[in-house]
């Protein structure tokens, strides 16, 4: 489904990763590991097409991702570092625009918020919510759009313990229903499915590629 060959990326004269190969099929999940600043977010943004400073090959359904861009965007759900929640708008208003921007009918916003324990928070402006609640609004988007691939950058940030285990359950359900999952997290994952890993630190160490 998503395939990367010989990816290379450097930032500020420092090689973040090189010769990075992996493939992610339907029903598989991969956790990207690495210390702070090792390039986890950069890797996810490159795969999303938000960062173009890389060399190598990224393929989506067997095609170069530049050619399959429209199909790729329709199939991917990306959760970035920033929650993509406008603090002046209410939870429902944020999600309604998100649905429209994805070309999806905004029917199930109430249910999506309820799935993340935000019953009754539909019309509360997001600046009145705690960081964890804002994160939940942000996460609720994944219930609203059909996507074959979830790319999640630190999805567990700011969630309480119960929220973490509920999210783990949702991620496992998604992978078991033939979804593909790519995520970064520093938290020990407890998922009911196999999780592959890409270790960016190990990748750098074994090849010894600090070029200065």
């Amino acid at each position: 489904m998503l395939e990367a060959r010989d990816l290379y990326c450097e930032r500020d004269d420092r090689v973040l990763f090189q010769h990075l190969d992996f493939s992610l099929c339907a029903g598989q999940s991969i956790q990207v590991q690495g210390s702070n600043g090792s390039g986890k977010t950069t890797l996810l943004r490159i795969l999303c097409g938000l960062n173009r400073d890389y060399r190598g090959d990224i393929r989506w359904q067997g095609q170069p991702v530049e050619k399959a861009r429209a199909d790729f965007r329709a199939q991917v759900f990306y959760l970035g570092h920033a929650p993509a929640i406008n603090r002046s708008l209410s939870a429902a208003e944020n999600l309604r625009w998100f649905c429209a921007s994805r070309g999806v009918r905004a029917g199930k916003i109430r249910e999506a918020l309820a799935a993340f324990n935000l019953q009754g928070y539909d019309d509360v402006p997001c600046y009145m919510m705690s960081a964890g609640q804002q994160r939940r609004v942000s996460l609720a988007r994944m219930k609203l759009v059909p996507a074959a691939l979830w790319i999640l950058d630190e999805p567990f940030t700011a969630l309480d313990r119960k929220g973490v285990s509920e999210l783990e359950g949702m991620l496992s359900d998604f992978v078991r229903s033939e979804g593909s999952l790519l995520l970064t997290t520093h938290h020990p994952l407890k998922m009911d499915c196999d999780v592959g890993t890409i270790d960016l630190d190990a990748l750098i160490q074994e090849r010894g590629v600090y070029d200065h």
Binding site: L50, Y78, I85, N86, S101, G103
Partner: peptide, 21 residues
Amino acid sequence: ADYEDGNLEQLLMSPQPLYFL
């Protein structure tokens, strides 16, 4: 605001024609 809260990234990931957005 969109740049700071990450909505700009979501906008650019939208499958809808960006021209009209």
